[in-house]
């Protein structure tokens, strides 16, 4: 009798769990559907002709599929070039910036030294700075260095303005790594850099991946600094390129929306690939030991 009771109880619980999961799943489906609805105008508009858009409006089904918009955005809109520039800047600047931030975050989290808190706060204050206020002085500095109107001019300000957030996140994460792990390595005679490079960084992969996604996104979409620093057509980045579809008197919305889809594709792909690392669960075990 007792056996049957337990058995009944267990199946009941399992059924309740499944029911809960199904509920969550259904709720998520509904939510995501609503969440993605705004994209419908981007997809529709990128697939129709200008006349179709003008006559039938944004939310009607396209009269015919015009894939040519993507080709024209790529060729005529110069997106091929802008895409290359943005890709180059993002793929080089982001790892560089995160490396610089991680180096700075390590002593702030794991080495006790004078002024550690003031230095941390000093970095944090950067979060509060609206970037607009720095544009003109940055421009002047770049002109003095002679980097104006070149892609390298983007790196220092991008890295500088990315540091506060990255240091905040990384310091918080490094902090969670048990001190014993670090001191054990110290006893073994490892240098601080070795500890940082061989122990702390590998343990931090999920957060590094998260930062990579976030920073890549910021870099990919950054407009203001690029607008001010870059003049030549061949140096334009993707957000600058998108401006190109907005004429003074009219905007070519079909090409513009095709451009938007092209522009967000790499970031979505990046997110999907990096996601594996974000939630790889590496730390869960490692930290526990």
């Amino acid at each position: 009798m007792s056996v049957t009771t337990i058995g009944a109880g267990r199946t009941a619980r399992r059924r309740r769990l499944n029911g809960w999961d199904a509920l969550v799943f259904a709720a998520l489906c509904g939510f995501v559907l609503l969440w993605l609805a705004p994209f419908v105008s981007v997809v529709f508009t990128s697939l129709r002709s200008r006349a179709d858009l003008a006559m039938n409006g944004v939310y009607s089904l396209p009269q015919g599929i015009v894939l040519e918009n993507f080709v024209r955005a790529w060729d005529v809109g110069g997106f091929g070039t802008y895409f290359g520039n943005s890709l180059l800047v993002t793929l080089t600047k982001v790892p560089l910036g995160i490396a610089v931030a991680a180096l700075a975050a390590y002593p702030l989290a794991k080495l006790r030294f004078r002024f550690d808190t003031p230095v941390f706060i000093f970095f944090l204050i950067g979060l509060a700075i609206p970037i607009h206020v720095a544009l003109v002085p940055l421009f002047t500095t770049m002109r003095q260095i002679g980097w104006l109107n070149s892609l390298p001019s983007l790196y220092p300000p991008y890295i500088a303005f990315g540091l506060p957030f990255q240091i905040l996140v990384l310091r918080g994460f490094f902090d969670q790594i048990p001190d014993e792990v670090v001191s054990a390595a110290r006893v073994d005679g490892a240098s601080e850099f070795e500890i940082f490079w061989r122990i702390v960084l590998p343990l931090s992969l999920p957060v590094l991946a998260t930062l990579f996604i976030i920073d890549a996104l910021h870099t990919w979409n950054e407009l203001l600094i690029a607008l001010v620093m870059l003049s030549s057509e061949r140096l334009r980045t993707v957000p600058l390129g998108l401006l190109n579809f907005q004429g003074q008197y009219s905007s070519d919305f079909t090409l513009f929306n095709a451009g938007i889809l092209i522009a967000i594709l790499p970031i979505l792909l990046l997110y999907i690939t990096m996601q594996r690392y974000v939630v790889s669960g590496l730390t869960a075990g490692a930290l526990k030991e």
Binding site: V100, A101, L103, A104, Y106, P107, L108, L111, F113, D116, V119, F123, G126, I129, V133, A134, V136, P137, L138, T141, P156, P157, I159, A160, F161, L163, I167, E192, F196
Partner: peptide, 19 residues
């Protein structure tokens, strides 16, 4: 610690703090 922070501090001072 300062060696670790050197690159960050240089960039931060030059391109955020100074402007």
């Amino acid at each position: 610690p300062w060696l670790f922070m050197l690159p960050a501090l240089l960039i931060y001072l030059g391109f955020l703090v100074y402007p």
